[in-house]
Structures are given as C-alpha cells and as structure tokens.
Design a protein around this nucleic acid. Structure first.
Lengths: 338, 338
DNA sequence: TCTTTACAATAAATCGATTTATCAGGCATT
DNA sequence: AATGCCTGATAAATCGATTTATTGTAAAGA
C-alpha cells in the first residue's frame, strides 16, 4: 500500500516518465503529445489517485507553495483573526501557510526567517519587530516576495499593508475632547514600531491642537499580564486627576480594564475609555468600550492580494506598493459626554 | 550570493561529499573519520554558515520535521492559545508547525489531511470533526503518529488528550443547584462530538440527580454570529421562567452574553450564568461570569509530549494512550446565591 | 609471500519529480 | 539520394542531500 511514484505510473502504462510529467503539468499540447495517450494517462492517474511527491517537485523547481506567516502572537485576537483570513485565502489559491509568533523578539525572528528560508517558502508575510531591517532587506535582495503588515520598516522599501494609525488616534482623541474631557492619558507599550509611534503621534497632535497637556505612560511588554497590570495600576493611582484614558492596543486595553475593575473605578464617570482594536471584550464590558476597529478582512485581503500578485508576476520592475486602510471608530458608552 | 550546497563544500575542501554528510550528521566516529578532518570540515561549515537543504534531506530520509496541526478555528481564543503553546514546544524540539482550521467541516478536513500527507508531515495533531473516522484510521494504519485533542473518535483507537467534560459540567451544574437555582437551561452547539456529548450528559446527570427538569437548546453552528444569537434570543424570550443558563462553549457563551445585553437582562438576578471555557470576556463582564477553565498549558504540554514520544520511539508496540485532564471551576458573580 | 583485517575515505545509487537534449520515423524539398 | 523539417516520444541530466557499496593502503596473521 506504499505510495506510488511517477515511475510506477510510467511502467504500468509503458510510457516514459517524461511524458507523464509533461501531461500532468499541462504541457501536453506544447510538447505535441498524442491526444489518446493523454487521455489514457489522465484516466489512469485519476483512477489510482496518483499525486506527485511535492518534496521532489519543490526540490527540482525551487517552489514550495508555502507562505511563511509571522505574526507577533497568534494568541492575540487581532493576529488570530488576520491569520485565519489569510489562511483561507491562501488555501484557496493553492498555498499552504507555515506560521509562527515572533513575540516581537528580534533574535527569535531572525531564527524564524532562517527557518522559513531553509524550508524554501515562496513568500513571506511579516509583522516585523524592530531591528530586523537587514534580514528583511536581505530577503528582498535575494528576490523573495515579502509583504509586511500592521507596521513597516522606515528604511526598507517593501510592500506593506497598514491602517491609518495617526488619523485614527487623532480622531478618537478629538472625540474625547469634544465630549468635554480635559485630562486624557495615553497608555501604550514602549515601542519604536511605526504603528505605535503613529498612534502616539495622533494622540499628541490632537491634544496639542486642543490646547491640553499630554500624559503618556509607556509599559514594557511582558508575557506575564501581572507585569503589565502593575504599572497601569500604579499609574492610575498616581494620576487621580485623569478623566479619560486611551489604550494604545487591545492587549493594553484588556489589561487596563482588569485594573479598572480591580480599582473599582466607574466608567465613564470616574474615567472615560477608548481602546485601539475592537473585539468582544470591549463590546461586552459595562459600559461597552469605545474602540477603533481595524478592517481585519480588508487587511487580510490586501496582504494576500499583494503577495499573490508578486508571486505570480515574477516582474521585478514593479516598485514596492504600500496600502493604507481606514479604520472604524465605534463610539460606545465608555466615552459618553461629561 | 546563491546558497551553497554540500558539493560546494566538498569541492572547496577537497573532500568527498559523503564525508561531509557523515560528519554533519554526527556519524564521524562511527564511520572512523580522522579527527583533524572532522575539525577542518566543521570549522569551514560554521564559517560559511552552510545549512543542508532540508527539502533534499526530507526527500531522501522521508522525514520533514513538520507537524501538522488542525484546530477547529484558529481565531477562537481557546484554539489560538493552544496553538501558540504547541508551536513553542514544537519549535523548541526542532519541529515546525503547519496549521489550518477545519471549521468542523468534514470534507474540508479530508482535503487538509491529504495536503498534510502530501507535504510529508511527520506527525498530526488534530481536533477532529465528525465523520473523519476512516481518514484518521487510514493515517494510523499507515504508521503516521496521530494525537487527537479536545475530543476523540469513539471508534478509532488513537492517542488523545482531553479534559473531564462530564465531571466539569456536572460539578458546575450542581453549583447552580446549590445556589438555589431551579430552572437551569443548557445552551450548546448541535454536535455529536464526544466533548459536546459529555458536557451535555454532565449537565443532564446533575439535573436529574437534583430532581429538576432539563432544558436543552441546541444551536446550529454558523460563521455568522447573528445566526447564533438569533436562536439564543428567541429561546430566552420563550422561556421566561429560566433562572440560570449554562453555555456549553466559549463561543456560545460570548454570543449569549451579547444577547443578554441586548435583552437588557440583569445577571444574576434575572438570570444566573456559567460558561464552559474561560477567557477575558468572562472575567471582565459585569458581573464576571463563572466559567470552567480548561488547563490550556497542560493540554498543550500533554499533546506535544505524547506526539514527540511517538515520533522518537518508532515503537509500534505501545498501545494508544489517552490523557484526561482536570478543569478549574472559577466561581464568580454571575452565579451568586439566589 | 599471500591473505586478512582495520582503517580512512570515496564513488555511485537513491529519493521522485522536472527539464534539457536526443532520437526515430515520415514527409517534403532540392 | 541526400537534406531538412515536423511529429511524437524518450533518455539522460538535474535538484541536494543520505545511504550503500567500493576502493586503497598499511598492519597483522598464516
């Protein structure tokens, strides 16, 4: 019951394996192979359910039909949702996904890129951590299709898909201002990544434009949630005068909500809230939390479209393209007028 | 700057590629290769950073160092968390993960199994949908290491990792009874899967033991949340006499919470709640929802341990083992005494 | 001296495909 | 009759490793 190879097929039909290969790869006409031979081969192949060994195929052709997907953390709902959608689109186009979580760890990411490379993935989809510029550049220099998403690397010219972070936080901060809040803090992860910087800048711009004072608290990321909640808690306890808080990511937002619950703060009377990213936790909180919703499907679609495009047209002459998508701002009870 | 192969190494050192291969695979001693030659080769290999082409290696050896992971839906927080942990453990042991979401769709799953097979994955980790028995059996018959989790297939003898579903729901239902609730409903997805049946049975057993009347509502799964919330909503509206509801999965629970919010029901005064699975949504709801927490790390650890074990010891003589883990019942405000 | 044995390393076969180069026969052209 | 040109199919080379079989030499035993 062992799997049969192209040679077995060839022997059984008294035809050379070359011919079989040509037929199976749709090059029968081009190679002027007799019509009835083609039919005979196709019939038999379908009958026994023969499938070419993809490893051998990849070895010879250099293509693996695998896409490497690197997210920050697959257990984060945002990345999980993106991954899910990308997976679907990829499978529909005959590509499989190998994925992994970078943890925003530069050296881990380097290892993973090497792994992917070693596995001869055909293309890369990456939410890049800081400090990975050279590795990405080297991938691109070697002609590998690479699409970044969620953030980009300022000094590397690649295709990337992002959202309009700056406008999103600017807009949402302005909303708080219009609702009458005066002491608005921005709590986020300490990071130099483009999306984080843009979100912070959007907040600062809005605060400045409103003649208010910016209050920014940066948290060092850690796997252990206690180490995120701790600093948030002490920050909130120290700044009693705050009347609103803007969380820079869904993870910070979730931890923030836990802290707020622990401290027994009333939302929005004690503290109004907005978070970046939107998901069930925010919708179901009491009161529901206003949030900036990323267009997850559009992001996934754009990413896969750009990548498939690069994969199919081996045209090097297309300069890199960047796609910036709009977000939705879902206003809910947590940011009611004062 | 193209990648260099074992032949390049061999030529450059004036050594045969056979020798290089033996050295790199740690068979130098066994093959009685001179000590200084070994050193010379190892030094050069490290210097130029040569890495064997894994495709060629896999083609020859038949091993790919890839594990296929099939979950129900990678965007579900439970599966995302499990996947994350499995990924970590796998990478640490030199294995990569190819994953996909089955959607509990039998024919999709069959396709995916074939894909994995085609890619020569070394082992399978599967949360199997119904109707996939023959395919799994055939995998096992062909000597592929397979570990199921979250549920198992009654007629297939495989290794699997599960939790004690029946006891979990029995115990939690009893808790509701003890708190004084009399009309307790169980809302779950319509499914014949073992874990779902066991959860339902645990509920029924507890209700029966308490002399109460079981009220079960089965929802047909759908990607579209509206089609899940709809039936829950009409069910709750029809059964005004209910004083408690038990949600059979995190997804049903989340949708249920949305319905409860929409209907403006007070928890636990109008309706007490318990959900299977535990995650942020339940912790942050007001009042926080009592939930059965699966030991996610232990599940992932067990799964990967069992699989690695099967991969390393090619011993066919070990009969299949099943691991059943305990859950934690986190009692919160949603199921306070009446 | 001739055969064994141990040692050290290599040539060649193999995995299963794709791709390139080659061949055999029939027909038309000169 | 010799040459060239299609047609239809195949033999052989290739991808980059691992594994098996083989070689050559020097020391040991008969």
């Amino acid at each position: 019951m062992k799997k049969l190879s192209i040679v077995d097929i060839a022997n059984h039909l008294n035809v050379s394996k070359t011919t079989i290969s040509f037929i199976l790869n749709g090059r029968a006409q081009e190679k002027r192979i007799g019509k009835e031979l083609v039919e005979r081969v196709e019939k038999f192949v379908a009958e026994v359910g023969y499938k070419p060994n993809s490893l051998a195929k990849s070895l010879r052709t250099g293509k693996s039909n695998i896409i490497g997907l690197m997210v920050e953390d697959i257990s984060n709902p945002f990345f999980a949702a993106i991954a899910r959608l990308i997976e679907d689109r990829a499978y529909k186009n005959g590509y499989k996904i190998i994925y992994c979580s970078t943890d925003n760890d530069t050296s881990k990411t380097k290892d993973l890129i090497n792994m992917f490379r070693d596995r001869h993935v055909d293309g890369y989809i990456i939410a890049p951590p800081e400090g990975i510029e050279e590795d990405i550049s080297s991938l691109i220099k070697d002609g590998m299709p690479v699409v970044l998403f969620d953030r980009h690397l300022p000094n590397v010219s690649t295709d990337y898909v992002e959202i309009d972070n700056l406008f999103s936080t600017y807009n949402a901060t302005m909303h708080l201002v219009q609702q009458g809040y005066k002491n608005i803090a921005f709590i986020t992860f300490a990071s130099h990544q483009t999306q984080m910087q843009a979100r912070l800048q959007g907040y600062k711009d809005a605060i400045k434009a409103s003649g208010l004072k910016p209050v920014v608290q940066e948290i060092v990321f850690d796997q252990n949630e206690e180490l995120i909640m701790g600093p948030i808690s002490t920050f909130l306890k120290k700044n009693k005068n705050l009347d609103a808080v803007f969380f820079g990511t869904n993870h910070v937002g979730t931890c923030g909500l836990k802290v707020i619950n622990n401290l027994g703060l009333k939302v929005p009377d004690d503290l109004a809230l907005i978070s970046f990213d939107d998901y069930d936790v925010f919708k179901l909180f009491s009161p529901p939390v206003s949030a900036i919703a990323q267009p997850i499907e559009a992001i996934a679609d754009s990413v896969i479209t750009v990548l498939l495009n690069k994969l199919n047209t081996s045209s090097q002459h297309i300069s890199s393209q960047s796609i910036v998508l709009k977000t939705d701002f879902n206003i809910r009870g947590s940011s009611k007028a004062k």
